[in-house]
Write a protein that binds this DNA or RNA. Sequence first.
DNA 1: TCACAGTCAATAAT
DNA 2: ATTATTGACTGTGA
Length: 541
Amino acid sequence: MLLTSPGLPPQHAIPLPAATSNPTSGASTPAGQSSEKKQPMMMPIHSPHQANAMRNMHQHMSPTVYEMAALTQDLDTQVITTKIKEALLTNNIGQKIFGEAVLGLSQGSVSELLSKPKPWHMLSIKGREPFIRMQLWLSDANNVDRLQALKNERREASKRRRSTGPNQQDNSSDTSSNDTNDFYTSSPGPGSVGSAGAPPNKKQRVLFSEEQKEALRLAFALDPYPNVGTIEFLANELNLATRTITNWFHNHRMRLKQQVPHGPPGQETNIPTRENTNSTPFDPVQFRILLQQRLLELQKERMGLGGNNPLPYPPYFAAAALLGRSLAGMPGAAGGAAPNEAELRALNQKFQEQMAGLDLSMSSLKRERSDDFDDDLDDGHMSENENDSLDGETEKSGEFKALSNHAQQFLNNMRLNRRKPAAPQWVNPAVPSGQAAGQSGESATERLLNGEESSTSHHHHQQQHEEDMEQNQREEEAGDAPHHLVMEPEVLIKQEKEDCESDSLKEANEGMARSQDEDVASASVTSAAAAAVTNASAWNY
DNA sequence: TCACAGTCAATAAT
DNA sequence: ATTATTGACTGTGA
């Protein structure tokens, strides 16, 4: 039996560099059923001793972080991160070490978590775990000391290594990792490349040029949920892989949503916000025109003129949508037929009017990567005459001739599929039926844990049916079922509204919370659990 | 296959 | 040296 010691952060994150595939899914997974598990389980368990020692609380092991994350309703992530930041700062502890040792996350992730914590109700259970860990860490008396110790340890290790020559993989202290190693040429998957053994296919992060970014932002403003046709069109225009385009859209959507968590009182920003992105279906012609303008401006700005004004975007979006709507009503535009000059001119006009008051200037004009200005906009003819394309009717013909091809076919596959984004699945409890989450096999467990009384309690109150369940469960625990805690409480916090209702949870929480100190205050994390976890030497120190 | 949530990890910026 | 940003990837679910 392996009791997963609750607080253990997802181990690794330290050792394996590239091997993204992750151990978690390891062997299991028989053929069929995919229903993988994820979450905390299976870790090597250091020290079998004490493991079961403490864990007698009603023979129920203390909740795992996952469970806590699932059962905790409402936690102020902002407060937690503030405390953490403060603690790290005053003790001179870096995000890197904190992330690795406490959260099991990389520096970048920690940074994001700390600086832009998503509100609790927006987090999935998985996403809540780091916050639970932070909370637990905060309530750990020796938290700082331990990290400090670890820090020293590492420093010495690296020092030693440096002086003793290149090889010599430190070792003593489990927590190796460290800077400068990382070449584990292991790069498993693709294989093919590698060969030379030297440059393990690095990741090579492709940087977009300002122009490309601008184009993407524009496209996003016009249609945050582009369909395949649009994606392809963009990929073509910008000379990027479609995969890259979709990645960008995904990332952008997510990151946009992530910020602006405040402003609770009414006031829903009109960020794209999922599906019904009504507005127009994205018109390549329109896109080109707008883009051209943007690029011109961009260029202008680059050449001195610092008329730059920040924040073009949010407003920009609204404007674009607006624009789109008006254009939609126009004859040829988006109609399907290649636009003629008159129309184009009209479009431009419209556009100008609409955009008149806005500031479309680039906010982030910093870091210009040496005027590669037009190299990426395919045929380059984009920027040729910067003599203010608008108004003149000269350049249109040539330019749009080229475009009409794209546009043409584009418009064809357009409007087919416009799939609506799946509903957000925050804390999707569910376990609707079938195997769903659990997968630890036995449904008994699920049922048992699921919903109300779940952990803690079985002594007091209720439940008609569970008598025997209890037993089942016991057996299971004893048996092996490592994960099993996959319980899926009826958290169902379902985004907005009703977010704080689920009484079942409340109950559970209360149950768990009985006794013990309470300095953790603000949080409703069960302090009991916290204590247990804490002294169970949970972290990676 | 798409969207999404989380993360990683290479770079940028401080 | 740290922290912030961000393109890409993995695991899920529909």
